[in-house]
Amino acid sequence: MDTVEILRRLVAFDTTSHRSNLDLVNWAADHLDNAGARVRLTSDASGEKANILATIGPEGPGGIVLSGHTDVVPVDDQGWASDPFQLASRDGRLHGRGAVDMKGFVAACLAAVPGWQARKLRRPIHLALSYDEEVGCLGVPLLIADMLAHCPSPALAIIGEPTQMRIGLSHRGFYGYRSVFHGRAAHSSDPRLGSSAIEPAAAFVAALAGFGRQDGRVATTVNIGKIAGGSAINIVPERCEVVWEFRPPGEAAVDAVLADVERFAAGLPPGVSVETVPLARVLPLDCATDSPVVALTREFGGLWPPITMPFGTEAGFFQQAGIPALVCGPGSIAQAHQPDEWIASAELVAADRFLARIGSWTAEKGGV
């Protein structure tokens, strides 16, 4: 099957993050096994989510990891012109949830496997397909730990998030939290008998919005993703939940934001408390322009000059594990998470060329 046909199959699996991805995983694992790859699966505690690690070529160090995720964001409350889980072709664009983020890259990798297998590879190529990237890169730490436990250390990881095949060298980290405010319920005819959880939560939201605008932290962005609280118009609310995230330029900014959150919690009115717990952490990426892996990725067809990405990826987890990493993949991030999400057919052709060059290099040179 070619890349477009595989993408059609992948899009048809509804792998929205709150659902299981096992149908896609089982299909892809069968495809890889039939092509002769060595396949390993690792699962979350529920058994409803799984990672795929597939190796093509010999056992040995210095391999190349091609990393992608299998989950997609929801389509709820989005107006689509066609079924989001049926790939639709219009004017050179392929529409479907996950087409660009990032089942297009995954499809290109799966389509490339038979060609890699037909060559005598001197170093392995590892496909690393993880679960729950969209909700905080939850699957990739398990995948990397399993890979390092069972495979000699790879030389490079390329994360195929959409960069229009430009080489992405850096991005900020991501920190997600849930803050739950607890008050005391009362009849609204005399609010003094209770303690509203919503009012301090609203003040907290306003304070969060200001964190990213303060001097010295202009590159920190904050988003309030969800607010939920109260039960009726005539009851003083006893609970309010705020789900929020921030993306700092560095560790100093992380400490500064969390210190501000602690100071806010210390100043709450009597009868109100707050519990803030972490939900997700995506590690930052910082790859030097003179790194040998950058020159190698340019040899494969990664486009220059490099970019700094506004979005987070799994790359920082590979870097933390001692595997040099960068980002380079087909399509534009501007089309991700949108109704009628799409990837240009020409971008998939570019990805096919890129992956074919990886196969050629691994067969002909096989070292970094």
Rank of each mutant, 00 (worst) to 15 (best):
V65G: 07
S17Y: 08
K103Q: 14
V293M: 14
V282F: 05
L143G: 14
S291R: 04
V72Y: 12
P74V: 09
G210Y: 05
L32D: 07
R40Q: 14
V222E: 05
V257Q: 12
A29L: 15
D14T: 03
M102K: 06
A37K: 03
F181C: 02
L148E: 02
A336V: 00
I358C: 03
T313A: 04
G329E: 02
D352N: 13
L143P: 14
F317M: 13
N223K: 12
P237N: 01
G139Q: 11
S82L: 11
A118P: 07
A108G: 14
F13E: 06
G173W: 03
G96M: 15
L87K: 04
M1E: 09
R93V: 07
T308Q: 15
H171E: 01
P269N: 00
R247F: 02
G36S: 01
F311H: 02
P154E: 04
D77Y: 09
I235V: 15
V261L: 13
S179W: 00
V242T: 01
I227T: 09
Q338E: 01
P200N: 03
Q320K: 15
K49Q: 15
A197R: 00
F317P: 07
R213N: 10
L66S: 06
K120A: 15
A253N: 08
P154C: 06
Y131C: 03
L138P: 01
L285M: 08
T42A: 11
T42R: 13
V4G: 01
A50T: 08
G302N: 13
V205T: 02
A334L: 13
L193R: 12
I6L: 13
V254T: 03
A363W: 06
E262R: 11
F211S: 02
F181D: 02
L285S: 05
I52N: 00
L148S: 03
L7Y: 13
P152I: 00
L326C: 15
T221M: 06
N26C: 12
D30P: 00
A315P: 13
G160L: 07
S17R: 03
A256Q: 09
V222N: 05
I323Q: 09
A232N: 01
I167E: 10
P124V: 08
G136I: 09
V327A: 04
K49L: 10
R247P: 02
T221R: 11
R217E: 02
C109F: 03
A334C: 03
L66A: 07
V39A: 10
V274F: 07
P306N: 07
I323N: 08
A206G: 00
Q117L: 05
H171D: 01
D132G: 08
C151G: 04
G216M: 06
G212Y: 05
T42C: 09
S20W: 03
E364Q: 15
L94W: 11
R38V: 14
G62C: 09
V243F: 00
P124Q: 11
H171A: 00
G267Q: 09
L32Y: 05
P162S: 05
P191G: 12
R97Q: 01
G267I: 01
Q164N: 14
T221N: 04
D71M: 15
